[in-house]
Design a protein around this nucleic acid. Structure first.
Lengths: 144, 144
DNA sequence: CTCTAACAAGACAAATTTGTCCTGTTTGAA
DNA sequence: TTCAAACAGGACAAATTTGTCTTGTTAGAG
């Protein structure tokens, strides 16, 4: 469904948000450990998230990553997904056809459009803050 | 969403079914051409489909692939998907966590389960015959 | 019987994704 | 001022997926 990179991106973003809500800044090392992600690879992804304005990176000693309340409220999962994976998952043909659309639909077009739309709406309606609150309440978990 | 291999598998299966409904057997060459798939790669996938009982392969001169009406009626897309891609797409965690379940859910677990379930049901309720009839009616298309 | 068209299957190659390592830069603190 | 902790970024490496090639086998037709 999502690429590994995208999975790490979402997990890391939620982890940063979780710590930021508690007033803590997090290092790559902690992110990797607490969200079970490969450190160096995740570091690259954090750069993308920072460049994309999903969160802030702070350099230097005691640096790390943090997220403002506003970022948590305005960042929807769909944004992270399209930033990392592009929007093929939202718009691409289920059977991989280049020219599949309502006028010249592939055999699965209509059925697939329903599901894909559901996915898109779910991701658009879910903010980082939403998920982070559950996480900090102990209702959901990021590490096995 | 699906792997390339799986996309080719579905496209090829529908193409074979489409021809079989007209009483024709199809060669790998024709499948590759008519469904815009790489020939040798698709050949491997056809072997998997044949081994999986999705369709028949006939060797020798004038050989090729064909599908019985019964196969078209009983083969649901979910079967092809799980045969080629496994059922990670139906059961895997959206954030890639190994131990994500209702008891210890990831932050996206509940929202994701809804969408994934919708996808699964759609694929389980769609038979090859359903899609092939539309295809042969000219309502849907396999080639760009 | 032989030839040819077609699938079977394994080895190989290319491309993409995933992951690592190393060097440089930034910044706080002693 | 210097040191150390942390991110930035490029080069590299491994793994997976995608795709190709070559050889063998099958079976119909002359």
């Amino acid at each position: 469904m999502f690429s590994k990179a995208c999975e790490y991106a979402i997990r890391s973003a939620l982890l940063v948000a979780s710590h930021s809500l508690k007033g803590e800044r997090v290092s790559i090392r902690d992110i990797a450990e607490e969200s079970d992600s490969p450190m160096a690879f995740t570091a690259k992804i954090m750069q993308q998230l920072a460049k994309g304005g999903i969160l802030y990176s702070v350099q230097g000693k005691h640096g790390g990553f943090e997220m403002s309340k506003e970022q948590m409220q305005t960042t929807r999962l769909s944004r992270i997904v399209s930033l990392i994976d592009g929007d093929k998952v939202f718009t691409g043909c289920g059977l991989g056809l280049k020219a599949c659309n309502a006028l010249k639909p592939c055999p699965l077009h209509n059925q697939f459009a329903v599901v894909r739309n559901e996915l898109r709406q779910m991701l658009e309606n879910t903010t980082v803050l939403d998920l982070t609150l559950d996480l900090n309440n102990g209702q959901t978990f990021l590490k096995r």
